[in-house]
Design a binder for these strands. Structure first.
Length: 509
RNA sequence: GGCGCUAUCGUCUAGGGGUUAGGACGUGAGAUUCUCAUUCUCAAAACCCGGGUUCGAUUCCCGGUAGCGCUACCA
């Protein structure tokens, strides 16, 4: 039997890391087994579904590196791929199920049901549908329905245990006593989730249902739907045998406080990570390692093709995992360092632009300069969004603030600090710009005349030049300051000469 | 409340009837560097509790506890 898996999100919001991991595992499994990955949009909840999310969903998936053979945007034999376009199918099979006696009309109003539920809860018993309408003779039910009474359609849950073999969790069994007859079709005529998934998965020939474990408790209801469908006389089934697919339920991703990952833990949408300058391969790699580990368990870095190669559902863990953004950042730093500098630059430019450090459409000279800036700053950031802050030493210079700074004052209080800065400023301002060579030569000279070295040499110079005693390598930073001062920027970069002048003036007072 | 799922360092995990319980992130220390960061080396750090089965359980079984999920005419 060919492997066919599906990812079936609801377009009710942005794709977040939990769903993305489910999609990734489905995709990995499909690719690993040369199967087909189907994208299906579950938009039966008209109230909450929005068309704009569907497009974004697909963009996010593509960004992560996933692709699909069948979906709303491409051809396939099992379409349509939006539940909202499959209403006829749901109604058709509901009629068949009613005719076969496996389903029945329910005339209970939501208010009645709610009341029943509250009473059951108060009595401390399992709230489930009483089955009141089960016993209405079919002929009577049909005529009441024809007469215009509103009715939903319910499945008759058989009086026997419902079980399925979960590829991740093993055998799971539910007693029929705890499962009330589920709604198939709402009184509005639309399909309820537990029914629609079965019709869709069955008709789309899905072989493996890989999804979040919040669906485990729904699965027995779905199993009952499959069984009822399988009992239908063959002409009604259109060649679909309604055999149970293999189920594989993935553990939930939790926040650091051990509760389900949600808004409270900050933004976890893929769009957010993309905007922050997290690389898709880093996110995919990290997500793959949440709940899955290769046998041996001693390897962490995997490209998408390597994941495909190594992936298997048998290695998926059943226990919930906590999303650790610190480890994600570690992984992102790794991929950032490995990446083509040109690609990183292209990703960084919009980020610099967003904060106004550079203007629109940088020319080649600006690109060249930024390339070096990024290269210098990259080892200091977790993601690209931290670049502008790091670049502050280049774009912002405030001599007065730097002198007022408490940490700096300790350094500047040393008598040698004044000697160093004055000596350095004098030599540095004598002629031309500070190239690497000149900078080193000047520093060398100051070292000799002041007999200072190490921190007591570099710290004062750093403070005068950048406003901070620590930062990236000075001999790389200095030429960048000089080169930057020749560029046309929204707020000009100050040259070393300029900085030293402002610093000394401010220090006089 | 009922039902279900889960339980190895702080976190992600490997492992499995007898192991010095392995790796990674993070943390600490040291080395390198002008500093911070990077890089490298080293270190501390775990089998939820109680019963059983067994010569022997962290591993298998049962119970407890805790966390999470479901308990809808949401998905």
């Amino acid at each position: 039997m060919p492997v066919r898996v599906r990812f079936a999100p609801s377009p009710t919001g942005e794709l977040h890391v939990g769903n993305a991991r489910t999609a990734l595992f489905n995709w990995l499994f499909a690719r690993r087994n040369r199967g087909v990955f189907v994208l299906r949009i579950e938009d039966t909840d008209v109230e909450r579904s929005e068309a704009r999310y569907e497009g974004q969903l697909m963009e996010d998936l593509k960004w992560l590196g996933l692709d699909w053979e069948e979906g709303p945007d491409c051809v396939g034999d099992c379409g349509p791929y939006r539940q909202s376009e499959r209403l006829g199918l749901y109604q058709h099979y509901a009629q068949e199920l009613i005719a076969a006696g496996s389903a029945y009309y329910c005339f209970c109003s939501p208010e009645d049901l709610n009341k029943e539920r509250l009473e059951a809860q108060a009595a401390g018993s399992q709230p489930k549908y009483s089955g009141k309408c089960r016993v209405i003779p079919p002929a009577e039910a049909i005529s009441r329905k024809k007469a215009g009474e509103t009715a939903s359609v319910r499945l008759r849950i058989p009086d026997e245990p419902l079980r399925f073999d979960d590829l991740v969790g093993g055998m799971v069994e539910f007693s029929p006593d705890v499962i009330g007859d589920p709604i198939l079709l709402r009184s509005s005529g639309t399909a309820a989730y537990n029914y629609a998934v079965v019709i869709d998965d069955g008709l789309m020939q899905i072989s493996h249902v890989i999804r979040g474990d919040d669906h485990i408790s729904n699965t027995p209801r779905q199993v009952a739907v499959y069984q009822a469908l399988a009992r239908l006389p063959s002409p009604a089934t259109d060649g679909c045998d309604w055999r149970l697919p293999q189920f594989a339920h993935l553990s939930t991703i939790l926040g650091p406080d051990h509760t389900r990952l949600s808004k409270r833990h900050g933004v976890t949408s893929l769009a957010h990570f993309r905007e922050r300058g997290v690389l898709p391969e880093a996110l995919a790699n990290y997500l793959a390692l949440l709940g899955w580990a290769p046998s041996g368990g001693d390897r962490e870095i995997f490209s998408l093709p390597e994941l495909v190669e190594a992936f298997s559902l048998e290695q998926v863990s059943r226990s919930p995992a906590i999303f650790d953004s610190v480890k994600l950042h570690w992984m992102n730093r790794h991929y950032l360092k490995q990446s083509d500098p040109e690609r990183v630059l292209d990703l960084a430019i919009p980020i610099f632009r967003a904060v106004g450090q550079i203007g629109e459409s940088p020319g080649e000279d600006l690109r060249q300069w930024l390339r070096e800036v990024v290269d210098l700053l990259l080892p200091a950031v977790d993601d690209l969004s931290q670049l502008p802050e790091q670049a502050g030493v280049i774009f912002n210079y405030d001599a007065a603030a730097s002198i007022a700074n408490e940490e700096n004052q300790q350094v500047l209080a040393e008598p040698s600090a004044r000697q160093v800065i004055e000596g350095f400023a004098k030599l540095a301002q004598q002629d031309g710009e500070l190239t690497v060579e000149r900078f080193r030569a000047v520093l060398d000279q100051v070292k000799k005349t002041t007999r200072q070295k190490g921190k007591s040499l570099f710290h004062p110079v750093r403070i005068a030049l950048t406003g901070s005693p620590s930062g990236r390598q000075l001999d790389r930073l200095v030429p960048l300051l000089e080169a930057g001062s020749r560029l046309k920027l929204p707020t000009p970069v100050k040259s070393c000469r300029q900085r030293l002048m402002e610093f000394q003036q401010a220090w006089q007072r």
